[in-house]
C-alpha cells in the first residue's frame, strides 16, 4: 500500500532530481524552447517541497492536489499548469483514501495524464511530455521500475520527432534532432517515483 508519506517522499525526490538536472533541462530547452524549463521547474518543485513541509495533507489525494496547485501558481511557464494538472487530477482521482494500492495509483495517474493531454491538446508523437507520460502510465500498473524505463525510452524517442506543440513547433523541421525538455523532465518525475518505491523495497 502507498501512504501519504510515500507521495511526500516522491515529491521530495522529484525536487532533488529537478535540482540536479536543472542545467541539463535548460540546455535542452535552449535548443528548441525559451531556455527556462530547468529554472522554472526548480522554482516550482522547491515551492512544492516548502508547502509540504509547512502543511501536512492527510491523504495521498490531498497531498498531490496541493502539490499540483503549488506548481500552477509558481512555475511561470507552460510546464506549471501541465504538471500541476497532472498531479492535481491524479490526486483528485485518488479520492480521500488514507492509503492506495499501486493499481489504484496507476489508474489515477492515467487519469492525470489524460487531463494533461486535454489541457494542452497534444497527442502521442507531438514531441511533448506526453511521449514520456503515456508509456509510463501504461507500465505503472505492473512496475514502478518499468514505468521509469518506459518514460526514459519515451523521452529518448522524442529526438527524431518534429514538434507540433508549443514554442518548439515554430521551428518546424529544425526541432528534429533534439530531445524534448518536457519529456525529459517527465521521465525524471517518473524516475523519482521508482526511486521512492525502491527505497522502501516495494
Amino acid at each position: 500500500m502507498l501512504d501519504t508519506d510515500f507521495f511526500r517522499r516522491w515529491m521530495t525526490a522529484a525536487a532533488a532530481s529537478v535540482d540536479r538536472e536543472a542545467d541539463h533541462l535548460t540546455d535542452l530547452d535552449s535548443a528548441i524552447g525559451d531556455a527556462d524549463h530547468g529554472s522554472n521547474l526548480q522554482r516550482g518543485f522547491a515551492a512544492v517541497k516548502a508547502v509540504l513541509e509547512k502543511d501536512a495533507p492527510a491523504t495521498p489525494g490531498a497531498l498531490l492536489a496541493l502539490a499540483g496547485r503549488q506548481l500552477i501558481s509558481t512555475v511561470g511557464g507552460a510546464s506549471g499548469p501541465l504538471y500541476g494538472t497532472l498531479l492535481r487530477r491524479t490526486g483528485k482521482a485518488l479520492g480521500d483514501e488514507a492509503e492506495v494500492t499501486q493499481e489504484q495509483f496507476a489508474q489515477a495517474f492515467a487519469a492525470g495524464v489524460a487531463a494533461v493531454g486535454q489541457l494542452g491538446g497534444a497527442q502521442a508523437g507531438d514531441k511533448t511530455m506526453l511521449d514520456a507520460l503515456l508509456p509510463a502510465a501504461e507500465a505503472l500498473a505492473l512496475s514502478f521500475d518499468g514505468a521509469a524505463d518506459a518514460a526514459r525510452a519515451g523521452a529518448e524517442a522524442t529526438v527524431p520527432m518534429r514538434a507540433r506543440k508549443g514554442r518548439a513547433s515554430y521551428l518546424g523541421e529544425r526541432s528534429i534532432g533534439h530531445q524534448d525538455p518536457g519529456a525529459t523532465s517527465a521521465a525524471l518525475l517518473v524516475d523519482a517515483l521508482a526511486e521512492t518505491a525502491d527505497g522502501e523495497g516495494a
Binding site: 500552477i72 506549471g80 492535481r88
Partner: peptide
C-alpha cells in the same frame, strides 16, 4: 500564448 493559455485554463478548471 503558451503558458498564458494553459495557466488560465487550469485556473478555470480548479
Amino acid at each position: 500564448l503558451g503558458s498564458a493559455v494553459l495557466t488560465v485554463k487550469s485556473m478555470l478548471a480548479e
